[in-house]
Design a protein around this nucleic acid. Structure first.
Lengths: 250, 250
DNA sequence: GGAGTCATTGAACGCGCGTTTAGTATCCTG
DNA sequence: CAGGATACTAAACGCGCGTTCAATGACTCC
């Protein structure tokens, strides 16, 4: 029913598939073992028997997704764009489950999400290096950061897929959405947004100027360094955020 | 107490602030009313007394965030959400909490998240129209979709802020990160990625070729998509592709 | 054919959740 | 100062969660 390859239809694989689907659709916290078990046609106890715990099940799903993506890695080479686009349009639904789960992994900031992001980043970086080497892509003043940026740009429509779907009126994994998104995206990647380099030049100047002092941002009417104000010594601290505020927390 | 404006320090406001912080840091599902109550220095029952339920509390937080952003709307003069957000980040302590909560709203696909996305989209669209009108920005074959794309590109670093922090070695709401991100982002927005239009042309061809087979309807009244076509008959429309993070493919 | 392993289950356990309740201070109003 | 609203709490309730447990087959190996 849900398994792509019938030979994968061992019970554990069926449970894992159901878990990926549920986690991808409703998130980890909002999915119960009993739901997953029901989807797979087994008891909740069996899920634990096979995977140990809910968290271990998630890790198994993470591993599966990473392997699944690695398997597709060769497809990432040599962008014969025309062929690739056709292929998407011809292969509907194949990756939808994985994509939903991927988005959940990245959004939940799990260790698996970090692994996955690094994987995609490596791929993107390699692609950019090839492109720069063969002259098909521009060079960058900060190739590593550009790789991170472009990776995140590629992920953005996935992470915001429900907003895209709402605004476009069709799911982003529909042929219609892919078709509509292709050209504007490539236009942007080819010509950029700005008609000239005025802003870029202005930013270069501003950054050069700023790097002479150690002060940030001359741009606004407030030259005073407003560095990291909160949590300062004058803070009475009723405490409402514990270790918050640092994305690398927990 | 922790609130920006001391007159907001009513108990309900303190609870709401604590909720925004917790929800932003750990997500809605993983936050308990008792935690929020403890942060605000009150009992869990009082939270319900003031807001009615956990879900109603979330909605109050959503409303607060939207109003907070609307208040900053005049500042949204700058080009591109990316730049705007960077501007917020120049003022680190002030918006960090809101930004975390914003990311959670969008990721959780709540009604408030839709409202917020539409708000940002409107802002971006207006900015693009102004830019095109005064010649500082290029035109697009599909302005509406481009607005959605650029909005999502601006949000991407926020949604993936933990990955950015990990890879860059510094939180994205640090002056260092902002400084490092500025130039590559503007380079990309100014010159694009590709050195020539080969890929773009190839995609145009591919889409034209695919459009031999009749078309679906654009949902909206605005700019008609120039690409149309539907792939085959009997197609359970949806589609494909994990190779995210790879621009050559979008 | 009995011992041993493994897949599988229904029932139960304990916990922590959101929420309810019943009550107590505190303040406002006339 | 009576009286009612309001702010607030401790305790409890019921539910559903992840997990455990004991039992039942089914299959394998000598």
């Amino acid at each position: 029913m849900r398994s792509t390859r019938p030979e994968d239809a061992t019970t554990a694989a069926r449970i894992r598939d159901a878990a990926v689907a549920r986690f991808g659709a409703h998130g980890y916290a909002d999915t119960t073992l009993r739901e997953i078990a029901a989807d797979a046609g087994v008891s909740a106890a069996l899920v634990v028997h096979h995977f140990g715990s809910k968290e271990a099940l998630r890790q198994a799903c993470d591993d599966w997704l990473v392997r699944e993506l690695m398997g597709e890695k060769d497809r990432l080479d040599q962008p014969a764009v025309a062929a690739t686009i056709r292929e998407w349009l011809d292969d509907p639904g194949r990756f939808r489950t994985s994509i939903d789960y991927l988005a959940v992994m990245l959004a939940d900031d799990t260790p698996g999400g970090a692994r996955l992001f690094d994987l995609l980043l490596d791929e993107t970086r390699a692609m950019l290096e090839r492109g720069v080497a063969d002259g098909s892509m521009r060079d960058s003043s900060d190739p590593e950061l550009r790789a991170v940026l472009i990776t995140s740009y590629g992920l953005a429509p996935l992470l915001l897929r429900s907003q895209f779907a709402r605004v476009l009126g069709t799911p982003i994994d529909s042929a219609a959405a892919v078709r509509r998104m292709t050209l504007p995206t490539l236009e942007f990647y080819t010509h950029g947004l700005y008609a000239d380099a005025r802003l870029l030049d202005a930013a270069r100047e501003a950054l050069d100027a700023a790097s002479e002092t150690h002060a940030p941002e001359p741009r606004r009417a407030d030259p005073a360094p407003r560095v990291r104000s909160d949590k300062g010594p004058g803070n009475p601290v009723q405490d409402p955020d514990p270790p918050v505020g640092d994305p690398a927390r927990d």
